[in-house]
Amino acid sequence: MNSAKKFFQNLAKYLAVALLVFIIVSPIYWILVCSFKPTRELIRVTPTFVPHTVTLFHYVGLLKETGFMTYFLNSIYVATGSAVLVVILTSLAGYSVYRCRYLGRRFFFNILLAIYIFPRVLLLLFLYPMFARLNLVDNLLSLVITYVGITAPLNVWLMRAFFTSVPLELEDAALVDGANRLQILFKIFLPLVAPGIAAVAINSFLMSYGEYLFASILIVSDRFKTLPVGMAQFLQQYEISWGWLASGSVLIILPPVIAFAFVGRYFVKGLTAGAIK
């Protein structure tokens, strides 16, 4: 009786887990499988859930015949640049709001949180003329500047748990030893919160890497397009190539997934700790 009950409890548990995994994985599985199918198998009326023939045909075609590599490098450039700048700005700001006491600290923190309420389209409407005047339209720098602005503030929040967990005594001791505050920040404090910095880096990298709205307006010429825009465009231009769509999707997904595999757990930790006050 008891063991039967236990069996059904376990069964229910694993069914729930399986359902969750299915919800998450199925679309990704599908695109992965499709990217390896030859064209005639792709457009069959009865789809195959496991490919009958495996081919790299679409990958080769995509890399050879489209600007995929150019878009890809642009995206990596923009995302890396944004991530580096966001890390610098938020490390400083995080130290300021979490480790220093001064008048207006709460006010500044609230301003950073207020980014939630800025309609992105609004920003775009007037960033475009601003960049035009600065001669930065059709320049990847305009994307970096924008992405840092819209992703940095929230990342300060992501650092909270890491920044508040370092004991103040460490800084005291260093002050006694005669170190100045900048030395303490860079040589003692920041190395201790490296996981928090990794969380911020992956978060801003992912947001900048996949951003579409700003990239679609601020970049004009093909050689500066980032992946999301370039991809969306060449798929609309001609008759849609399902093979390219699938293989392109897989290739776009790859860098963020690899990055997440390395430091994703820090992001999860930051999110987890940020949720609980």
Binding site: I28, Y212, P228, M231, I252, I253, P256, V257
Partner: peptide, 11 residues
């Protein structure tokens, strides 16, 4: 579980 969030919206 964050996999869907990791993937760019365009894709």
């Amino acid at each position: 579980i964050l996999l869907p969030w990791v993937i760019p919206v365009v894709v």
